[in-house]
Design a protein around this nucleic acid. Structure first.
Length: 584
RNA sequence: GCCGGUGUAGCUCAAUGGCAGAGCAACGGUUUUGUAAACCGUAGGUUGUAGGUUCAACUCCUAUCACCGGCUCCA
């Protein structure tokens, strides 16, 4: 078998079998569930009463696996001839999960994979469609990583099993590289950098998932919001503001009271009125639409808002900035005719692509289509899905289709971003909505004088400011490019006598709106440079001493590049201004 | 919400039933520096919270909250 990337998942799957065998050797009462390969490794789920796997167990299991591998066993496919007999055998052995799986796949020509020694003795068998590596000599570089709880068949109604995650590579070198990558990724974690760079905090006294934006991160956000506003104006949007709460009646009309109730926060006043802290901005934008009469000439109407919403997420779901309870969506709703749909979708895709490229971010696209419980007219769904596909194809974007994974109110395109350790998060999304315009009875006057219902698009570019910022921090490892950097330049005077000149430079920078300060503490120059560049990740440091004061120049040190020489003050400021303007 | 882990100074971490400690940061002083950590000193704590066991609890037990890794959820 060739040791390439395609076969790597086969290797990992085989390794999960060896792990299961090892677990059965050490814990014979463990029941096997499933054990597939996954993106960066594999896992196997076990049902084991009376014992919880701990880290020491992982070491023991790993050692047992090594013993098994050394026996030089081979994998052999076995066609199940008598399925009923095999199901009974699983049941007799207590392997109820395997019995359940086989029951389901009884008509799919089910197979077992046997792990045999050279004398042909079967040491382990597992219900499995394969394929596998020929023998255990391929399994050389593996490591068990961690344990976790996981529901049988992924349903929280079922029993929670114990999952062991591991990974395997063709050789030790690749394995070590991967482990190193995991270590490095931990350093990029936005939660660690959030503390280190004084970006944000979350307090018990306030509550989980509620973010305090410290000045540094608020500064980054301000720059991004400025970009966002400008770009919206350029692209023909109107920007609005709406309240944070609304009477529950609004959410009854929108249907959120039914569909989204468990995620909503309710507020009651003294006069027995019930309000809801908004989990969405859409109904408010619809209300603004309703304030006027629109004709086909006015459409599309593109309405945007940086709208802060609150959603009651389950406690276990929260995570740093990427999954929170209060967040600001860079939300927009586009009201248009069915004919305008493809152009509008195209324009949004362009907006997303343009914006993410600005940050050098890569993304994956997913198209989710009509679910079983859809609302609206089937013909419109077909048109809409075709429209979304057309728009994606037109741009030549690669995308995956998730059949039936759309919202009940319309199909959608999602843009997925990856964090430091490769977890994907939903960023931008474009969602069609056939439902809300109907529920709120929205109308426009068409060419023929008839009242018609517009189509509505929900879309976000960043997703939420919080999540995007979390991913952005990891993307840049906290070293923001100049235009975003909270502090752009630190001036380091070598001795006290250079502070006067430093002050002059500082005033010039400040006049140009460059975020900067002079470090006039009684510390060594090296210390200040180290702190500015390494600890605070400042893009530029200006060093001034006798030479600079004498020649009326400044010495520049650039993050990562080091000392880049001396410059005329104006020359440097101009190049900095250009760099900021170009957002590089 | 579920399974498991963790919670000690602003930050990173020690202290396994017997006097809560270190480094960094902060503050005071000395030093006036030529490109990624100068030196001396000072202060900083209800060990997440609430109970319990014990002569004695950061340490053991119970509850609870938060965070971390997953699962589920994210119309």
């Amino acid at each position: 078998m060739e040791k390439n990337n395609e076969n790597l998942s086969i290797l990992r799957h085989s390794t999960s079998h060896i792990m299961a065998q090892a677990v059965k050797n050490l814990f014979p009462e463990a029941k096997l569930a499933i054990g597939p390969s996954i993106e960066n490794g594999f896992y196997y789920d076990f049902d084991l009463e009376g014992h919880t796997f701990v880290d020491e167990d992982l070491q023991k299991i790993e050692d047992e696996m090594k013993k098994i591998v050394k026996q030089n066993l081979y994998f052999e496919k076995y066609e199940i001839e008598n399925v009923e007999k095999q199901i009974q055998k699983f049941k007799d052995e207590g392997e109820i999960y395997k019995a359940e799986l086989l029951e389901e796949h009884k008509n799919d020509n089910p197979t077992l994979y046997l792990t045999k020694d050279k004398d042909g003795n079967v040491l382990f068998d597992d219900l499995c469609s394969g394929p596998h590596v020929p023998n255990t000599s391929y399994i050389k570089a593996f490591k068990l990583l961690n344990t976790a709880g996981a529901y049988w068949r992924g349903s929280e109604k079922n029993k929670m099993l114990q999952r062991i995650y591991g990974t395997c590579f063709w050789n030790k070198e690749d394995l070590n590289k991967y482990i190193e990558f995991l270590e490095e990724a931990k350093k990029r974690d936005h939660r660690k950098l959030g503390t280190k760079l004084d970006l944000f905090s979350i307090r018990d006294e306030i509550g989980g998932g509620l973010i305090l934006w410290h000045p540094n991160l608020a500064c980054v956000r301000e720059e991004i919001e400025n970009y966002w506003r400008n770009e919206h104006h350029k692209r023909g949007y109107v920007i609005v503001n709406t309240p944070h709460i609304a009477k529950s009646k609004l959410w009854d009309i929108s249907g959120h009271s039914d569909h989204y109730r468990e995620n909503m926060y309710f507020i009651h006043d003294d006069e027995d009125n019930e309000f809801v802290l908004k989990p969405m901005n859409c109904p408010f934008h619809i209300m603004i639409y309703e304030a006027n009469r629109y004709s086909y000439r006015n459409l599309p109407l593109r309405m945007a808002e940086l709208g802060t919403v609150y959603r009651k997420e389950r406690s276990g779901a929260l995570s740093g900035l990427t999954r929170v309870r209060g967040f600001t969506q860079d939300d927009a709703h586009i009201f248009c005719t069915l004919e305008q749909l493809v152009d509008e979708i195209n324009e949004i895709i362009d907006f997303v692509d343009y914006t993410l490229k600005l940050f050098n971010m890569t993304y994956e696209v997913e198209l989710s289509t009509r679910p079983d419980n859809y609302t609206g007219i089937l013909e419109n769904w077909h048109k809409a899905e075709a429209g979304l596909k057309e728009a994606l194809d037109k741009r030549g974007l690669k995308y995956e289709i998730n059949e039936g994974d759309g919202a009940f109110y319309g199909p959608k395109i999602d843009f997925k971003l990856k964090d430091a350790i490769g977890r994907t998060w939903q960023g931008a999304t474009i969602q069609l909505d056939f439902n809300l315009p109907e529920r709120f009875n929205l109308k426009y006057v068409d060419k023929d004088g008839q009242m018609k219902t517009p189509v509505m698009l929900h879309r976000v570019i960043f997703g939420s400011m919080e999540r995007f910022m979390g991913i952005l921090i990891e993307h840049y490892e906290g070293a923001f490019p100049l235009w975003l950097a909270p502090t752009q330049i630190v001036i380091v005077p070598i001795a006290t006598r250079h502070q006067e000149y430093g002050q002059k430079i500082l005033m010039k920078l400040k006049n140009e709106g460059i975020r900067s300060y002079m470090d006039d503490r009684s510390e060594s120059m090296s210390y200040k440079i180290r702190e500015a560049l390494q600890d605070k990740k400042t893009p530029y440091v200006i060093v001034i001493g006798d030479n600079e004061v004498e020649t009326n120049k400044i010495s520049i040190r650039k993050r990562k590049l080091g000392d880049i020489g001396t410059f005329e003050v104006d020359e440097f400021i101009n190049s900095i201004k250009k760099e900021i303007k170009d957002r590089v």
